[in-house]
């Protein structure tokens, strides 16, 4: 808490002192000159009069205190008390798309990812979340949105679907329209396309989209069967072009040796090529841990210079001034009666 126009206070004190001095010095010549009377003790000794004097004095005190407090509070408010805080905007403008491979081997890992994000969405503020499910074709289940209630609800449905809860299979409808299965490259490309184009206008048309970090959480084992339109590498370069980081989670990293043609190694190469990371997933429970790690690397990756935000905090002095002003008005009314 600091005062922006701190010099207001000495100025106000000086003014108050000068006013007091002038009032003391100057003649008390108002329009009603007191008139001389004799035997005033005949009035002042009446208990009723003394009670009236006490009452008057009490209200005068109230009025004086309220007036003083109102003045002081107004001066403090005029000096603009402000709170200087540092905000880290990168925490607030992330876009994350969950890109989940819906092939049967992935369901437990997908369920874990969906659950983790359903929980994380509760604490989000400003981040946008999307969900795309793919197998042979990609379905955008949740477009990029900050409607966290909807996100949570959909993630819950997704988790049930991945867990194989009866009656929830419809969730994955539309993911088998293509030829083959687990077309990872196509899925990743779809996810990358789910971000708005850089430099696109905001929905309101008020200006260009602000700079937001973009990341894709890609859960896949990278076992492709079929002919994808995009290869994984092509999708990776698309992501790089769009400035999207890919974090790959692989629950089935069965690579053997250091051959770069193995699926796990390829996935790692693509993910790291976009500036993201690759995490082999030993068990679905480890997903939460990994996602936390991803979150924190995201945070550090985007830790820009913290911006100082100055917000006026005049509500307390103004509130005090209002209350004491009301008290003053009441006391003045009482004194005038």
């Amino acid at each position: 808490m600091e005062l922006i126009f701190w010099w207001m206070i000495p100025v106000a004190l000086l003014l108050a002192g000068a006013t007091y001095w002038a009032l003391r010095k100057g003649p008390g010549g108002d329009e009603s000159v007191p008139r001389p009377v004799a035997h005033s003790h005949r009035l002042t000794e009446l208990p009723e009069y003394q009670a009236a004097v006490r009452r008057h004095r009490r209200w005068l005190t109230v009025a004086a205190v309220a007036g003083g407090v109102a003045m002081a509070a107004a001066v403090v408010a005029a000096a603009r008390p402000a709170e200087r805080s540092t905000v880290s905007p990168e925490q607030r403008n992330r876009d994350i798309i969950l890109c989940l491979d819906a092939s049967g081997s992935m369901s437990s890992a997908d369920a874990a990812v969906a659950e983790v994000f359903a929980r994380l969405a509760q604490g989000f503020d400003g981040e946008r979340l999307g969900l795309t499910v793919f197998d042979s074709s990609a379905v955008q289940v949740i477009p990029l949105t900050d409607d966290y209630d909807y996100v949570q609800e959909q993630l819950k449905v997704a988790k049930e679907a991945f867990d194989g809860t009866p009656g929830s299979a419809g969730f994955l409808d539309g993911t088998w329209n293509g030829a083959g299965s687990s077309l990872i490259g196509d899925g990743l490309a779809s996810c990358v396309q789910g971000f708005p184009a850089t430099g696109a206008l905001t929905p309101g048309g008020t200006g260009r989209t602000e700079e937001r970090s973009r990341s894709v959480i890609l859960a896949t084992d990278n076992f492709v069967s079929g002919e994808p339109i995009f290869t994984l590498e092509e999708a990776g370069s698309l992501a790089r072009k769009q400035g999207v980081r890919v974090y790959a989670l692989n629950p089935g990293d069965f690579d053997y040796g250091t051959d770069p043609e193995q699926p796990g190694a390829k996935l790692r190469a693509v993910a790291e090529g976009t500036g993201g990371a690759y995490y082999p997933l030993d068990s679905p429970e480890a997903a939460a841990d990994i996602i936390r790690r991803v979150q924190s690397t995201e945070a550090t990756a985007f830790s820009a210079a913290p911006q100082a935000a100055v917000s006026d905090r005049a509500e307390i002095p103004l509130g005090i001034a209002l209350v004491s002003g009301l008290v003053l008005a009441g006391a003045t009314w009482r004194l005038r009666r």
């Binding site: 008139r35 001389p36 009377v37 004799a38 005033s40 009035l43 009723e48 009069y49 009236a52 009666r337």
Partner: peptide, 24 residues
């Protein structure tokens, strides 16, 4: 008003109440 004996000020507002007027 003020008292000629000791210049004690008697504010006029204090003597408007009925109780004071009656007692006086």
């Amino acid at each position: 008003r003020f008292d000629v004996a000791d210049a004690l000020l008697l504010p006029g507002r204090l003597v408007v109440s009925d109780a004071v007027i009656r007692a006086y």
